[in-house]
Amino acid sequence: MTDAVITADPGDEADADAVQRAIEEKIYGFWLCLISDAIIFALLFAIFVVMAQNTADASAGRTLFQLPRIFAATVLLLASSATFGLASVAIAARQRGRVIVWLGMTIMFGLGFVATEITEFHGMAVADAAPWRNGFLSAFFALVGTHGAHVSFGLVWIVLLGCEIALRGPTPIAASRLYRLGLFWHFLIIVWINIFSFVYLPRLL
């Protein structure tokens, strides 16, 4: 214990190390944000399942949901996750042009997904299946709507980050932002897997 002396330690940390450390911390923190978000989705799922069991005419989903449309939405979202992955590969290789192209395709697929969802919501509202009809529909719209809002927000963020990469190039900081955005995007697809597996498909049996 006698040799416990004050030492100069990260004082002489080089700037590059400091940037690297900050990036690692941000990734770590972002995981925690995703955990909080995952809990929000988990609660919405739980509420949905409970509502589906408590609501008398919950089987109406059979007529409201359309298998081809859900399949199309799923394919669009999976495709967007693939293109996002390719953008991540491209930024690791510092290929600015390819990053922009893959992100552009991700945006197109994402927009397609959001459009499919809006069409579905609109169709349901017209078919007198609006969120205020019963608890089942309330929970459905809350869960799927929250996911759709997340996807839309993610799309805005992809646009912003794409602009940054186009203007400033694939810097390490931009790469780390793309990495975190990728975590968010793939996380949303995991949520969607749960949505089509536990919300849509069981009601189309």
């Binding site: 995952a38 809990i39 988990a42 799922f45 739980a46 399942v49 409970v50 949520v191 536990f198």
Partner: peptide, 9 residues
Amino acid sequence: ILVGGTLWI
């Protein structure tokens, strides 16, 4: 929580 909880319920 997310998958297991949903399945459980």
